[in-house]
């Protein structure tokens, strides 16, 4: 069953929540849902004034994946330096802020709470409103920024390490879920494939680079064709595992590029096929792609006629949270002081 799902109160479509006197609203946005500590400043015209992202990827590489407790500890160390850097870069002081936006969920709860606590403290102590933002709506909202400047309605493929979603976006503040992955997210499939090929973690980008020197038709990996508009990537990962295991000792090195290219091609084909099916089904005139996997070169090429989130705004960042916040209704103090984070959200 599909349900309409809304992020907070709505402002008239297409109109960012404007301040009374027509002054430009300057928003400080904070994002700490996973392993990037990020802060951004945006002005009333939707221009990014700063976009600071401190990645913890290296910190988690030795664990082969994001460790929530390690991530949360690092967020606490980085949160103030990252916010300060964003303010400095934008040349904005606390006096010039109109509101504070922050990711409320979904994500790692301990990680989210660091950003949310800092955001509430900053907003409350300056007497400013707070705008809690859904992380997924944030990814979609990266498309509203320069240079894409997309406007709803559109069909959005949101694909990252945590999500693979097909969304019917009719307005800035909400979307309707059309399809999702039943097992791994596409980004997870990339990372798991990279690990099998000995590329370390996170390996999505390394796999992309390796694939560029390989033959995508060397191996034929299966694509799950489920009823409806859902995805499945777990069979693909298993197929790669068997191919790698079946190689003679020492042969992996020679076949790695071909395996990477064929594996990537299968993921991209699955994403493209499903997205086109969804577009046809709802009669979408515009397709858009956002999320970390949208940085993949083959995916960008396959979707060259779609609206693509800028590469630097594909992986987690606070600019997308600031962008989403422009359309959401701010909560005035003290209404947000007991706000809690949420780890997951029932989408359908």
């Amino acid at each position: 069953m599909k349900t309409r799902w809304s992020c907070g109160e709505r402002t008239p479509p297409g109109k960012p929540g404007a301040k009374g006197e027509g002054g430009a609203d300057v928003i400080l946005a904070i994002e700490t849902s996973c392993d990037e500590t990020a802060a951004a400043l945006i002005d009333g015209e939707g221009r990014l004034r700063a976009n600071v992202v401190s990645s913890q990827a290296e910190l988690h590489a030795r664990f082969g994946g994001v460790v929530p407790e390690v991530a949360s500890r690092r967020h606490l160390e980085l949160i103030v330096p990252v916010i300060s850097e964003a303010l400095d870069e934008a040349g904005v002081t606390f006096d010039q802020l109109d509101s504070v936006a922050v990711t409320q969920g979904p994500g790692l709860i301990g990680a989210l709470l660091v950003g949310l606590s800092a955001a509430k403290a900053i907003a409350w102590s300056r007497g400013l409103p707070l705008i809690p933002v859904d992380h997924l709506l944030g990814h979609v909202s990266a498309l509203y920024l320069d240079p894409v400047r997309l406007e709803p309605p559109f069909l959005c493929l949101l694909t990252s390490g945590g999500h693979t979603l097909l969304l019917d976006v009719q307005e800035h503040t909400s979307f309707r879920l059309l399809g999702t992955t039943l097992d791994d997210a596409a980004g997870e499939a990339f990372d798991k494939g990279a690990r099998l090929l000995g590329l370390g973690y996170p390996g999505g980008a390394a796999l992309d680079r390796l694939a560029q020197g390989g033959d995508a038709s060397a191996y034929s990996f299966p694509i799950a064709r489920l009823d409806g508009l859902d995805f499945s990537f777990s069979g693909l990962k298993t197929a790669l595992l068997y191919e790698v295991r079946g190689l003679e000792h020492g042969e992996l090195e020679r076949r790695r590029a071909d395996l990477a290219a064929s594996y990537q091609h299968a993921i991209v084909r699955a994403l493209v096929e499903r997205t086109l099916q969804a577009a046809e089904k709802i009669g979408a005139r515009q397709i858009a792609v956002a999320g970390g996997v949208a940085a993949n070169s083959e995916l960008r090429e396959a979707f060259s006629s779609a609206a693509l989130a800028p590469i630097e705004l594909c992986t987690d960042n606070a600019a997308m949270i600031a962008s989403a916040a422009r359309y959401l209704k701010p909560i005035q103090p003290p209404g947000y002081l007991d706000l809690d984070a949420y780890a997951s959200r029932q989408l359908a």
């Binding site: 407790e69 103030v80 300060s84 660091v114 606590s117 955001a119 403290a121 102590s125």
Partner: peptide
Amino acid sequence: SFTGIRIGLAVARGLALAI
């Protein structure tokens, strides 16, 4: 609680930074 400790310190640091 690790999460509890971090909430307190994030609040303290946020307040200290902003005011």
